[in-house]
Each structure stands twice: as C-alpha cells, then as structure tokens.
Design a binder for these strands. Structure first.
Lengths: 329, 329
DNA sequence: CTGAAAGCGCTTACAG
DNA sequence: CTGAAAGCGCTTACAG
C-alpha cells in the first residue's frame, strides 16, 4: 500500500506539501496540487486514516450503546443516528450490550481509550452502571427524566397519560396495564402517567389490573393470559410497548376475546408492524428517527467543545388512532 | 490523560518495560509488574488504542454493510456478528448504506484506509457495485449462490422449493407468489425454487400469479390487492419474506378473505412477529444468528491470514409449520 | 508557497 | 529481564 512518502517521491515534493495538498489545498500552489493529484492517482494512494486519527487525536467515531439490536424501535433510532453521522463525517461503532455489564464497560473503555470521540446510550440511564459516563462526552437517547447527562427523549409520563386519557375519553373506566419490568424507569414514568390519567378522571386503578411484563412479544402474550384470569376484568388494556400489545392481542384472540369489541388495546412506540396487526393498533408514536438525529447532533457539538444549549431535549410524541379501541358496551 | 510515559516515570521504569508489562507480562519480572500495575492504578492509565492500532497496523474492527438497519432479519444476523466479534475481541462499525452507493463506497474506503480489518456484506452481492471487494478481506452473508468471494448463506432455491412443495403436499395446485424486486438475486433464486416445485409436481405456474413486491410490509399489502384482482385466483400464496406475508394477510383480511380457510399463506425468514400474527405464519426459518456468527468467524480467519476452508458455507434452513396453511376446499 | 523537523503514543528488534 | 532507539504514517508549527 502506498504511503504519503511514496506520493511525495512520485510528485517530487516533500511529504509536508503532499499532506497540505490533501488537507488544506488552499495553502498549496496549483502546480503542486496537480503533481500531487497525479501521483495519488498513479499510486492509488489512500491516506491511512488510522494514522491520521492518531495524529489528530480525533477519531470521528462514536459508539452507540444499545441493549439489544434486534428491536425495531432501537433500530429506527439508530437509523437516525447513522444519517446524522454520515452527514457530519462520523462513523458509528455498534455496542450491542445484551444487558451484559462487562460488555458495556468494554464499550465505554473504547471512548476512554480514544477509540471513539463520544457515546450515545440508547435506553434509560442506569444509576450505578452508567455513572462512568459523567466524565465522557455522552448523550442519552430515548431514556427518562433525570438523566444526569444530556438527553433526548419524549415525556413518557405525559404520553402514557395521553394514551390512557384517550381510552377514558372513549368511555372506558376500567383500564388495565401491562408494564415493563417494574424497576425500569420507563415503566415507572409510564405507570405514573397511567395513574395520573385515572385519578384526573376520578377513576380508581385496581392494583390487580397492573400486570408486569418485560417489553417482549412473549411477555405481552403471557400478560394477557394473566389478564384473562382476573375476576373483575377491565374493558381496556394499555400496553407499555407495541410488542407487548401485539403479543397480548394474539393471546386474547386465542381465548376468543374480540378486539376492540370486547376489549380495547393501546400500544406505545408505533412500530411498522403496529399498522399491520389485526386490528391495526392505536398507539403512541415516538419520533424515533428524529430522536436519533438530535442525539447525534448534540453529541457532535459536545465533541467540538461546545456545551449543548439544553441538558434535555424533550421531543413531541403523537397519539395515532387506528382500530384497536372502541367504546365499551 | 496519562500516557505510557507518565506511567514509566511513576514506576521508575522505561516505557519499553511498561509496554511489555501490559502486552507481554511473561517477559517482565514480578517486581516490575507490581510497580507498573501500581502506577497504572494511581494514574488511571488507559492505553491509547488509537495509537496501538496505528502501531500494529491492525484495528480489530470490521465493518458490516447493511442496506437498512431497520429490518429484523438483518438485525438478527448482526446480533450474531456482534456476539462473535465480542468473543474474538473485535468491534463492529455499522455501515447502514440505505442502498446509497456513495455511502457504500465510503464504508469500503474505511477498510482500504486501514480503519477496519475487513468487511461483511449483508445482502446479495451486487455485480459492478461491490466488485471492489475482491481485493479486500470480505465475506458475504445472507446472499446468493455465485458470490465471487467467501459467503455464508442458505440455499434459497431449495428453501423456496420446500415452501412451495409443502403447499403442494397439502393439496394446493394453484399457487401464487409475491416476489421481491425482480432483479434481486434472492427473488431470482426463490422464484426458481417456486418453478421447480411446481414443475416437479406437474403443475403449471400461470405467469399472472407472480406478483412483484419489494420485501416491505407495504408491498405485501399492495401485492395482495393485485392478487385479489386476479380472475382465476390461486388457493395459496407464497411470499418471499415474512414482512410481505404479514402485509398480504392484512390486505386479504380487509377484503374478507379468511386465512387459511379460503387462502393459504407461507412466508420466508421466520421473524419474531411471524409467530404472533393471526393466523400464526407458516414460514421458512433462516438461521440468521448463526449465519452472522459464521460469517464473522470466517472473516476473522481471513484477517489472521488463513484462507477459509470453503468459499461458500451453506447453512441449513427449516420449514416451520404454523397455522396459515390448510388444504384447499 | 515550501521543506526539514518534531512529535502524536505506542511496540519491538537489538544490545546488553 | 531491561533500556535506548527506531519507526508506524501522518500533521503542523517554524523558518525561509
């Protein structure tokens, strides 16, 4: 592989001039520029970026920490990050942690060891584990309120409140909920929204109506089974993500429950599949792609040495009304 | 940030010894090892990997080229790659190309410019565009037969043949197909399998039964509309991926077609959602995760300078029978 | 506008 | 087992 030295020899110029011709062409004469480009052409020279990075102490690489890449919501956020990265000349190193703390640490070490300029964490901040971020250039995306570093998210509490409020507006008074793992911050915030909506309408939320899931299809399916065993069944069900809603609908239909005639269901996220299930799912749309773009842009700013204007960017969500909700009989 | 020089000063040893203590502890005395580790501890030293990489001319990074990260099948393959990478001490740089050739070239340049040691292409090989791979360490995963460099895949033709053969074995003789884009190699191979299965059973495949899609939910939905307009409707439909099958089922149900009673449907891939649609989808399961693992391992071997044992690794697929197929009336 | 030289942080023959 | 030194490929003050 040709190096800058080969090019300088071929062009009959110093390596300094060759380097400038590439990085700062305005500092070099036209004649030299021509010689250099001819030499580059002839030798098929590609600058060794590894060397450039090392020299500049800047990698133009960011790491994206994600608990599980096989998740359509995360994946859409990552698309946004990739787009912004491509636009700004950055690359993204994928950190699929699978909730493995060692793996998470390894990726953080990448930033610490100058392999990457910064980091985006895609999930709620975990106190304890990810506190090590504080000394890094890092931003949290799709997390929760109170993240101790810059974050881009929606207001989960309000969104849940809106989802449940919509069910109430359709006449439902007995509303169940399938949550994520109970310690998860998203669960906590969305559950708060659920309770807020209920009490704002003067309704009581029976504790047995709250069923714990873990944001997977399977847990939605299982949650619905638990729901069916309730003696005093609600007429509507709020699922804290679309995957659980889809799992729940499956289980409900298996038991002969007709949706939305007997039971209304609302999801959260608006995955592409939400529009293709039967009935099409009414859900909260998070601006996943935009969240990714925004998070990346905030990070690039930080890397450039500017403090972000805000410590939190709260983006708007939207209620998407489709066919899974109907007034109770 | 502390450098190796700081550590050497702190430990009262040369930087050479410090370097060895870290990379080749067996070459260093116990006493020195202790001094070094104390100094590292005290200074919170992290080796600058950017420098190490540059020095070693080895990045321990691979790029994964994927047309679209927001695709559950791809994402599962990537999980496999990530697992293998973590195990072997590699990192993965995500190349979400969005079918943009410029972006694809940029990522290839990353390997050429020594930013990454090799590349995995997740999609069928595109003659012309990706010919530039030939001089790189590259492997193709989930592509097609005849890829001009190492590849890991299933036999698409046989898999399609099996899917269609299953419909035939259930008594269907009139079978339609929703394909991907017609120039796509997967489309071509799977279509061949479809025709093979038909003619092996002595059946004729009416050309109007072949409807072009593009592997998206929407195109499956649209394809089913086109299907409904057929005068002489088949009793079964083979969709070249699960997304199109799910889209098609949605459209069919909207038109009041009962599945599988009136029409049987088979998919391809076995996405997590396949088991949660209504009816649960009978489909071909690709070993996505394993394909990712295998592709990564082959690449790591190549990077280590060993030629792969085989130029093609053809992994087994599986027909998953669920509820979307029934004998025709 | 150009070149000689220092140096980014490490690793590794070489000599001891 | 250890250290002095060269060098990986580039960039950038500095001097001209």
């Amino acid at each position: 592989m040709a190096t800058i030295r080969d090019v300088s020899r071929e062009a009959g110029l110093s390596i300094a001039t060759v380097s400038r011709a590439i990085s700062h062409p305005e500092m070099v004469s036209k004649a030299s520029l021509v010689k250099v480009s001819k030499a580059i052409e002839k030798l098929q020279y590609k600058p060794n970026l590894s060397s450039q990075k090392f020299r500049k102490q800047r990698t133009y690489t960011i790491v994206v920490l994600v608990p599980n890449i096989a998740n359509l919501f995360f994946t859409e956020v990552i698309s946004g990050i990739e787009d912004a990265a491509a636009k700004h000349g950055y690359h993204v190193l994928l950190g699929d942690t699978r909730d493995n703390h060692q793996r998470e640490k390894d990726f953080i070490a990448l930033v610490e060891s100058k392999q990457a300029d910064g980091l985006i964490q895609l999930r709620p901040h975990l106190p304890g584990v990810s506190d090590s971020f504080s000394h890094l250039k890092a931003v949290n995306v799709a997390g929760c309120a109170g993240t101790p570093y810059s974050s881009v998210r929606i207001d989960n509490k309000e969104a849940a409140e809106k989802a449940v409020g919509y069910l109430i507006s359709q006449g439902h008074t007995r509303i169940g909920v399938i949550t994520g793992l109970k310690d998860n911050s998203h669960t906590i915030e969305r559950l708060q929204g659920y309770h807020n909506a209920m009490s704002a309408a003067g309704l009581v939320a029976d504790p047995t109506w709250t069923i714990e899931g873990d944001f997977t299809l399977l847990s939605g399916w299982q949650g619905a089974q638990a729901f069916m065993r309730l003696k005093d069944k609600p007429t509507a069900l709020f699922c804290m993500n679309d995957e659980m809603a889809i799992g729940a609908i499956k289980a409900l239909k298996e038991k002969g429950v007709s949706i939305p005639d007997t039971l209304s269901v609302v999801g959260f996220d608006d995955l592409p599949f939400a529009n293709y299930c039967d009935p099409a799912l009414t859900t909260i749309r998070q601006p996943a792609m935009n969240m990714g773009v925004k998070a990346a842009e905030v990070l690039f700013q930080m890397i450039d040495g500017q403090a972000p204007q805000q410590s939190e960017y709260v983006l708007p969500f939207e209620l998407i009304v489709r066919d899974s909700v109907k007034a109770p009989k």
